[in-house]
Write a protein that binds this DNA or RNA. Structure first.
Lengths: 153, 153
DNA sequence: CACAACTATATTGCGCACAACTTAATAGCG
DNA sequence: CGCTATTAAGTTGTGCGCAATATAGTTGTG
């Protein structure tokens, strides 16, 4: 990319981090469509299921949202679709009727085994070693933390 | 994150690369909302403008799509919004009436100066050095290339 | 207890992404 | 030239993300 003649070379798409980040996320999501075919899950739905699988007990919508950084505007319709698919239940918390507790159905629990090979398959598609992936993960996590700080200031 | 008791520890959200990637993209996008306030641009619209600013001549929808990895289903409505905003023109190519050539209006050209500080501001928000950003960019670009290969095989 | 402040979820509206499909124009081939 | 295949852009439908708002339930204070 020849950038020498530009008035604002810093605006070159290829010099910026933001675009590869955006493209990588979409490429990963696209790969998940293939890997999750047969489960009926979308990628965000898969993430919600990951959180539920690693929880010992039902989670409120807010708890799910904190873990995934998503709000009720995104989660409520998504959870309704998971409920329609028979993978989760949504019950009002008897102790606090404002809260909705999301829990796995038997079908939802059973799905965990079916997707257990997905992370490794995705790792293989990315063409990086486990250590590289973990290092990248840490860098991105740090980046998110910084952006959170910047945004709230 | 205690993972020791799980049947499928590889499914732990915190062990995977995919979630930080997804979270980082959304955090960056959110930061752009703030940085682009005043221009009226969304982040994808800003990316389209970046491509147009670095092009010497009008671009077809397909060319824009190849550069940004987006298809006409995404670009057509987005470009119509940019046209409504007075930033671009959309004209049929007289030499090939199937093609639509997207070109900058004067207002579209003038906007470049207004956003010229955005990359640096974003860089500051991310809390990483320029070299770290470039290294990360290269890793993500490589990741996208690998995923493309995996997807098409 | 009354009531204001707060919290949790749901709803609405907009703008992506993208798959699948349609329409129109062009290219290629007999 | 005529016809088929291909290409370019547009359309439709689904599912996010998220801001803004609405609604219902809870908490804290006097």
């Amino acid at each position: 990319m020849d950038v020498s003649g530009r008035t604002y070379p810093q605006l070159s798409l290829d010099l910026q981090l933001c675009f590869p980040l955006y493209a990588a996320t979409r490429a990963v999501t696209k790969r998940y469509v293939t890997l999750l075919k047969g489960t009926g899950l979308t990628y965000p739905q898969y993430l919600v299921m990951l959180v539920l699988w690693e929880s010992e007990e039902p989670l409120s919508v807010t708890s799910l949202g904190q873990r995934l950084r998503l709000d009720s505007g995104t989660l409520t319709p998504l959870l309704k679709r998971l409920e329609t698919a028979g993978l989760v239940r949504r019950d009002r918390d008897p102790g606090d009727e404002r809260r909705v507790l999301v829990s796995l159905t038997e079908a939802g629990q059973a799905l965990e085994e079916q997707v257990s090979g997905v992370p490794q398959e995705l790792g293989a598609s990315m063409g990086i070693t486990r250590d590289e992936a973990l290092a990248l993960r840490d860098q991105l996590t740090e980046l998110v933390d910084h952006l959170d700080t910047a945004e709230s200031s």
